[in-house]
């Protein structure tokens, strides 16, 4: 049962120029319901932060957006999620091209145990984005540049990606994601395993990426949400409590639960 009966999300869950639209999404793990009736828009070229205490369903919701939840057998998703008005849970949708359009960066840096070059080149290769080696080189170089990693690795592109530091590995994973040229990037606590300096670099990068991509980021750090996002969505026990412009959420939260969370009374 949801903790608040018949809750309607406070604030502004909808956007004028939505890239992704979630409508009445319910997620179940077997018998247990993890998400209750969430409706949310993610606007084009915006960074939206999903915050909330552990187990509130923010990661689960994020993973619905590129159907990564499909890998969990007992997981069932109800409701509609539209990417540019196409239902991504439609019966004819293949998850492979969907995930090429909606990329994902994970909590723990997870480069393949291959060279830096092959890590970034993998996506373009499997999707057949390039015809010649030169093109591939170009994509790899551009992706690494956009991820702010090029200068650090340009001399050792054929060294294993796993030999990089944690922060570099995470930027490599971001480069790998943008090499496929997705429209949306989902980030699941991308900085939780990184030190403050590496975190600062990634946050800077997110800010730059906003020009070209739509980004949804799950984070445990309220400072991070405040720094990188334009809108913030607060999840609580599987319900979407409030969505508002970030500065509003952190100064004058609308809902008492949001206020309790950002003032540190739980979480």
């Amino acid at each position: 049962m949801p903790i608040i009966k018949d809750h309607k999300t406070d604030g502004l869950p909808f956007s004028d120029s939505p890239k992704l639209k979630a409508r009445n999404v319910n997620v179940f793990y077997g018998e247990k319901q993890a998400i209750y009736d969430v409706s949310l828009d993610i606007g084009a070229n915006e960074v939206i932060a999903l915050i909330g205490p552990s187990g509130c369903g923010k990661s689960t919701f994020l993973r619905c957006l590129n159907r990564m939840n499909d890998t969990i057998e007992i997981c069932r998703v109800d409701g509609q999620i539209l990417l540019d008005d196409d239902d991504i849970y439609g019966s004819k949708v293949d998850v492979v091209p969907l995930r090429a359009r909606v990329g994902m960066v994970f909590q723990k840096p997870n480069p393949f145990p291959k060279s830096i070059f092959d890590n970034v080149a993998y996506g373009p290769r499997i999707h057949g984005l390039v015809e010649h080696r030169d093109e591939l080189h170009e994509i790899v170089e551009n992706s690494l540049k956009r991820a702010g990693l090029w200068n650090e690795v340009k001399d050792r592109l054929h060294a294993p990606g796993t030999g990089l530091s944690g922060g570099q590995q995470q930027r490599l994973c971001i480069a790998r994601t943008i090499a496929v040229d997705p429209e949306v990037i989902l980030m699941d606590e991308p900085c939780s395993a990184l030190d403050p300096i590496a975190t600062a670099k990634i946050e800077e990068l997110i800010d730059e990426l906003r020009e070209n991509y739509t980004i949804a980021i799950v984070t445990h750090s309220m400072q991070q949400a405040a720094r990188v996002s334009q809108r913030t969505a607060y999840f609580h026990m599987g319900q979407l409590i409030e969505v508002n412009p970030t500065d509003l959420v952190f100064t004058t939260p609308q809902h008492s639960l949001t206020e309790a969370y950002i003032t540190g009374r739980f979480g």
Binding site: N66, M68, T71, V95, V96, P97, L98, R99, A100, G103, M104, F106, K108, N110, P111, F112, P113, Y122, G123, I126, H127, C173, R176, T177, V180
Partner: peptide
């Protein structure tokens, strides 16, 4: 084989078979 490698491959849009043959099997 760590699940993170599988997630990385699937997240990039590799099909299940590509995930298995490119990443899981070599490891």
């Amino acid at each position: 084989v760590p699940p993170s490698i599988r997630e990385a491959a699937l997240g990039l849009g590799a099909s299940r078979m590509q995930m298995v043959f490119h990443h899981v099997l070599p490891l």
